[in-house]
Amino acid sequence: MELTRRDAVAALSALGLGGTLAGCVAPPGSEPVAVEHLRETLIAAAEVVYPSAVSGIEPFVAAFLEGRLADRAHVAGLDEAVAELDGNARVWYDAEFAALSVADREQVLRNVGADDADEDPSGTASERVRYYVVNDLLLALYASPTGGELVGLENPQGHAGGIGTYQRGPNA
């Protein structure tokens, strides 16, 4: 199932991030953050945590990140989590996370403990990777109409999908 521009807008607006996809946003604040690197890393992680049934990951994740960039605290947390992934990838594979094969990326996510960890934006490295990378991507997907439809729910929680769908039967 193809992730669309509408999904990205929906995911952004579910998180209060405006929902316009115009222009390019640099994070506010003085700390310089390598936005392109965050984007690559998130897309690389999405290829692991999203189901194989979805396509169009790249523009979807890029648009979602663009919205997140407005929140400085979030960007700082994401930057640290990405550094965590790169650090582990370098130790084990001598390359940055985004440069690895999908299987090796998955192994790095497991190495840092993001699979077992409960998300916590101010917790341990595993909990932060789970929050800023794995769960942020899953939240974006499963609060969007396409993500919801994959599960059989066109109007998932967090998406303002109107009051028609709850009345409809499965075959409508």
Binding site: V48, Y50, D115, V134, L138, Y142, V151, Q157
Partner: peptide, 18 residues
């Protein structure tokens, strides 16, 4: 369960999670 909430817990992702 609400799927989006369910998706954020558990130790699976990708096709297994779906």
């Amino acid at each position: 369960p609400s799927p989006v909430e369910l998706a954020l817990t558990g130790d699976d992702w990708g096709d297994d999670l779906l």
